[in-house]
Nucleic acid binder design. Structure first.
Length: 294
DNA sequence: CGAGTTTGACCGGCGC
DNA sequence: GCGCCGGTCAAACTCG
């Protein structure tokens, strides 16, 4: 386990495996997410003694606003940017649906009376919008802090950008991506931290319903054998003193990661410069604050 | 020409 | 009720 410093030294830079991990190569981190094990994954993560994170810190209510917190406190608690929404599936709001229908009827009635084409178009557009949104339920979300210059992490999946918004109090916009695979509704948000421009915050929402479509580019993200830091807690524990002095903890390669190889070559290191998720970092402060809560 | 991006408009939720 | 803001849509545009 290694930790970043202000010079952005990474495990990859100091050498890693040559993609030698067989087990982890075939089951990358994103695939873990895609396979839908992420919740258990995080649950096991938060139960690790070395991390001393209490479940409430990782489980957010939908009411919480991690993004807002991020803007003012870039390296704060897990609850502020690692989301694990375990809300029960929201049943479609029948009342809202019916009210929409009524609204649609009203709008239709109004538009026929108005007779103004332009207004009709506008009304139709509005109606179209409303019909498409039958009280969507929240998908589980996970946010990752990534220290990289690359805005868009190559995680092996194919994403289509569907929106971009200016972030309040930040010069950097937030981009919205959707998985291009048909039937896969996974989304992700990508934004750059205002306070540290080398920090990228990626938030995944939902589960992939398909395998990683991109074959390893040397290794695709789904196959790079990424072992998030919370899976290498023993190393983490050994270096707790060091962590206090280091602002970030890389969810990167480690000797416990089968991909890691001390011979200096690493499949992950070969792709590091392309902004892959081995650049993921987790804020150390989150653990400290977790300790306070225990 | 199809796939992906950009961008302004729109909607819904939430706080005041 | 109103305004703000995050998220989404979809037409126009770009690119390969």
């Amino acid at each position: 386990m290694r930790f970043s410093d202000d010079n952005s030294t990474t495990a990859a830079e100091s050498g890693g495996g040559d993609g030698g991990g067989d087990k982890w190569d075939s089951l990358g981190f994103m695939e873990l997410l895609g396979l839908g094990i992420h919740q258990d994954f995080f649950e096991s993560f938060i139960q690790q003694p070395a991390l001393i994170l209490s479940p409430p810190l990782l489980r957010l209510d939908t009411e919480q606003k991690p993004q807002a917190a991020l803007q003012s406190q870039p390296y704060s608690t897990v609850s502020e940017f690692s989301e694990c929404l375990n809300n029960p599936p929201a049943t479609p709001n029948s009342s809202s649906i019916s009210s929409l229908s009524n609204e649609a009827a009203n709008i239709n009635e109004q538009s026929t009376n108005a007779g103004d084409d332009e207004e009709q178009d506008k009304t139709k557009k509005q109606l179209k919008h409303k019909k498409k949104k039958p009280k969507k339920q929240k998908e589980p979300r996970f946010a990752f802090i990534t220290k990289t210059e690359i805005d868009h992490l190559d995680d092996g999946y194919r994403w289509r950008k569907y929106g971009q918004k200016a972030v309040k109090n930040s010069p950097y916009p937030r981009s919205y991506y959707r998985c291009t695979s048909s039937g896969c509704g996974v989304k992700k948000r990508v934004e750059r931290s205002f306070d540290d421009t080398t920090i990228i915050i990626t938030t995944y929402e939902g589960k992939h319903t398909h395998p990683c479509p991109v074959p390893p580019r040397g290794s695709g993200f789904g196959n790079i054998g990424l072992t998030p830091s919370f899976m290498v807690h023993h190393q983490y524990q050994d270096q707790q003193q060091q962590e206090v002095e280091q602002p970030y903890m890389y969810a990167s390669l480690s000797p416990l990661n089968p991909c890691f190889s001390p011979n200096g070559s690493s499949s992950a290191s070969s792709i590091r410069d392309h902004g892959l998720l081995q650049d993921i970092v987790l804020p150390i402060k989150m653990r400290n604050e977790a300790n306070e809560q225990v």
